[in-house]
Design a binder for these strands. Structure first.
Lengths: 194, 194
DNA sequence: TTGATAGGCTAATTAACATTAGCTATAATG
DNA sequence: CATTATAGCTAATGTTAATTAGCCTATCAA
């Protein structure tokens, strides 16, 4: 990993944990193993690091939600749907980079318009667009009742998003959150799947 | 309004807008119309102001969700339920103090355990407990299908909570968010109400 | 070989910020 | 009326943070 990448990595961790204003350039440099002024050989300043982090979050978002590839094959049964969805959610919840990015966005969402919009994209639009496609696929297969796929995607994802946010701030409740999500998911299946 | 209250008021506004670390004691004092050092006649320090704000948020929470009074009478029809629920949500979304408190909590949720817990209470538990009671009431009246009221409360509130969060960070989308919530609410009624 | 570039360092600069010390006037209290 | 508490002020202090200047060395291309 290049120094430039190491800086981003360290900054993401610290910003997620202590917020942008709660993190000093020196702390970032410490983790990287250089002195603070050396950091300016790689980035113009602290704000520049934040921008680069948002850039990379946006790129990752594009890779995750931009293409059709990441949907995988349409689940054929209730149990399969529950299984793959729980895996997807569990991954999103636990993957360190995704988790830290979420924590960064949620804390800095009021800092500027770019971050506001990115937060909405990550927290609402992306997930919903993705699940709308999966649900649409299952509708076409006749295993989900006919309805607006986007609307059902919201019904499906909103409770999960809130529980993920909860487990970000209270990691000791992670298990409880997952159980909660599964309960909700089973309810969703009962209501909307044949 | 006493100076002590004015300080809390100003601090809430600034913390909501710029975060705790993004706000200086001097800025707070400026709004109040005193000099920064005078502020220490009322609070021991900046952190003390934050704690007082959380105290008052918790008190308000207790008043809103602690008693049975605020549920009002059980709605008797779909349209009435939609109307009173939209009013409730619209109020929660627009009331300046509630809105700023939400913004404060969401930004500072990782600062300490107390704020983490308060955030979960405000964003999840309180709203859900309240709506669980309303839904339970409507179940007893036979206008909502028999099911776990707490679970239905989540299905009902989660999408609304996310849209409210969105309108906090993108106030220009407020109208869109409200329309979205109403759409969801009508869907909810279609699925769960006779 | 030379010379430039990249990437590290130390030292210095500048600004902001939280907080304390100590003074003063007004208002409340005995 | 005397005094004591309240709540404001200015000035000062100590700390921390971001950033800049300028130096040094290793690498690599001409």
């Amino acid at each position: 990993m290049s120094t430039k990448e190491k800086i981003l990595d360290a900054a993401l961790t610290l910003f997620a944990e202590n917020g942008y204003d709660g993190t000093s350039v020196e702390q970032i440099a410490n983790i990287v193993g250089i002195k603070a002024p050396s950091l300016y050989k790689h980035y113009k300043g602290k704000e520049d690091i934040l921008n680069a982090l948002i850039d990379s979050a946006e790129e990752r978002y594009e890779v995750m939600f931009g293409s059709e590839k990441n949907i995988g094959k349409v689940p054929e049964s209730r149990e399969e749907f529950i299984k793959v969805t729980m895996e997807r959610i569990s991954f999103t919840m636990r993957d360190p980079i995704i988790r830290k990015t979420r924590m960064l966005l949620v804390q800095e969402q009021f800092r500027n318009e770019r971050i506001s919009e990115a937060t909405t994209r990550h927290q609402l639009d992306g997930i919903q667009r993705m699940f709308a496609k999966i649900i649409k696929g299952m509708m076409d297969e006749g295993i989900v009742v006919k309805d607006d796929p986007k609307l059902l995607a919201v019904e499906l994802t909103a409770p999960a998003v809130l529980q993920i946010a909860r487990s970000d701030r209270q990691p000791q409740c992670e298990k409880e959150c997952m159980e909660y999500i599964e309960k909700h998911l089973r309810h969703f299946c009962k209501v909307y799947m044949r």
